[in-house]
Each structure stands twice: as structure tokens, then as C-alpha cells.
């Protein structure tokens, strides 16, 4: 018994070291920088800095755009998941592969591709002007950022929703029909509640990267639109104000933790339910 314990501790040590070096230490450092000023004295100023208009606006915009992107992803992914779950197995895996295929390419490359597509002299406007249609100004708008977020994060919404939909036994839906529910009632009273765990993990997996991104907003939003991710990135790389950058990161972390707590609570409810 004792020996077993010692062996398992030995086997676990690389992972513990990994977690220590790459997760715990950086986290402690972020908290250290975030809660001190440049002299090393304790301060809450870096946290309070979120109230400054430019920071507050960046946080608000990031929240708004990531919520919008998450909602759009959900409404695109759910019907697709339903169509896939109803389909025969052979075509299922093909379509799933098609949706995952872009993920094999580099994320920045994909976003760069959208840049050339949406540029004012880009491919889309080229086609529009060729067809004598009015050109669109998409690049460097919040809309372009939302398009980039939805495109990049959609697969993370599709997979968990599709998984939870396809694990519903056909006879459970038949039972609802049998007990008098029409198709709409069956969907809202049975299908949707049964897929809540999938929806929650999909939402989490889209919302968190969307909230913290700075690459998509830099490339598709130009330098005019600042999200909270851009602000933090600039504090670290341009202003060299690690204390402020870390302080704002802590604020952002609060939102992520809140999201995670909500999802864990509703997930537990789902287990009981």
C-alpha cells in the first residue's frame, strides 16, 4: 500500500513539476505584478485601472463581441448538430471532418485569409464591384471581428453539441411523441434539456477564447478597435507596464472564473437531473 503510494507519487512527479512551472508559478507572478507597483509595494491601483474609460470601453466591447459571437455560434451549431445527429453515420463523419479540417491550418493564417477576403480592395469587394453591386466596408469594424471569432471558434461549439445530440436515444424522443407531445414540445421539453451539458461546454469553449483574443481583433479590427486583450497585450509588449497588464489580466480572469462557476453549477444540476 505504502509502496504503491510512493510509486504513484513518483509517476505523477513530472506532471506536478509541469503544473508548478507552467501554471502555478506564472499565476503567482501575475498576481504579484498585478497587486504591486513598480517599486514592489502593495497596491490595488492596477485593478482599479479597469475603471478608466479606455480600459472599461475595451472590456465592455470584448464582452459584447464575445457574447454576440457565442450566440451566433450557438444558433449555427445547434441546427447543424441536429441535422448531423439525424443523418446516417457515413455522411456524419464526412461533414464533421469538413468542419474540423480548417483547424488543421494555423489559426493566424486563417485569420489572415479573412483579412484579404474582407479588405476594401479585397476579394469580396472585387466580386461585388464586378457584379456592379455596392462595395462593403467590413474590415476594421466590430462586425469583422465577430466574423473572425465565429469562423475560428465555431467547431468548438459544434462538437460538444453534436455529441450530446447524438447520444440521445431515438426512443426517448419517440416516448415524448407517444405521450402526446408534438414536435415543438418534444424539442423544448426533451431534446433541449438533454443537451444542456453540451451547450454549456460549447459556450465555455467559445466564450473564453473570444473574450481574451487579441490576434483576431488586431488583424481584422485594425488598430482602431481595442479589445481588453489588445490593451493587456500592449501593456506588456509596448508600454512595458507589467504591473498594469497583470492587474487588468486579473480583472479578466474574474469574468472567466464566473463563467466557469456557472457552467460547473449547471453541469452538476444536469447530473442530478
Amino acid at each position: 500500500m505504502n509502496r504503491n503510494k510512493r510509486t504513484s507519487r513518483l509517476l505523477a512527479s513530472p506532471y506536478i513539476a509541469w503544473a508548478l512551472i507552467f501554471i502555478i508559478v506564472p499565476l503567482v507572478m501575475i498576481f504579484f505584478y498585478g497587486l504591486t507597483d513598480e517599486t514592489g509595494a502593495f497596491t490595488l491601483e492596477n485593478i482599479a485601472a479597469i475603471a478608466q474609460p479606455v480600459h472599461a470601453r475595451a472590456l465592455w466591447l470584448a464582452l459584447a463581441l464575445s457574447v454576440i459571437s457565442t450566440v451566433i455560434c450557438f444558433f449555427l451549431a445547434y441546427p447543424l448538430g441536429m441535422i448531423l445527429a439525424k443523418n446516417k453515420l457515413s455522411s456524419q463523419s464526412l461533414i464533421i471532418t469538413l468542419f474540423i479540417l480548417p483547424m488543421w491550418m494555423n489559426f493566424l493564417l486563417r485569420t489572415l485569409a479573412w483579412m484579404t477576403l474582407m479588405e476594401n480592395k479585397g476579394v469580396i469587394n472585387g466580386i461585388l464591384s464586378f457584379l456592379h453591386l455596392p462595395e462593403m466596408n467590413v474590415i476594421n469594424t466590430p462586425g469583422a471581428i465577430v466574423i473572425g471569432m465565429v469562423y475560428n471558434f465555431l467547431p468548438f461549439m459544434i462538437l460538444p453539441i453534436y455529441n450530446s445530440l447524438s447520444s440521445i436515444d431515438d426512443n426517448v424522443l419517440n416516448a415524448a411523441r407517444d405521450l402526446g407531445a408534438d414536435e415543438r414540445q418534444t424539442f423544448f421539453k426533451v431534446t433541449l434539456p438533454l443537451t444542456v451539458p453540451g451547450i454549456i461546454s460549447g459556450v465555455t469553449m467559445v466564450f473564453i477564447p473570444a473574450l481574451t483574443t487579441f490576434a483576431i481583433s488586431t488583424m481584422l479590427g485594425g488598430s482602431k478597435i481595442l479589445l481588453i486583450g489588445n490593451v493587456i497585450e500592449q501593456e506588456f509588449t509596448l508600454a512595458y507596464d507589467w504591473n498594469l497588464g497583470a492587474g487588468l489580466s486579473i480583472v479578466l480572469m474574474v469574468f472567466i472564473v464566473v463563467n466557469m462557476v456557472i457552467s460547473i453549477i449547471s453541469d452538476n444540476k444536469g447530473d442530478e437531473g
Binding site: N171, V172, A175, L194
Partner: peptide
């Protein structure tokens, strides 16, 4: 449609609503 029929079914493997 099944929801309009005056009969009910007990399914193989029960098909209960687990939520």
C-alpha cells in the same frame, strides 16, 4: 401522428427522460 393516437408505448430499454 403518434401524439394523436389513443395508445401508449413501453419502449425497449425504458427510454425514460433522464433529466
Amino acid at each position: 401522428a403518434p401524439n394523436k393516437r389513443p395508445l401508449n408505448t413501453v419502449f425497449q430499454k425504458y427510454a425514460l427522460f433522464t433529466h
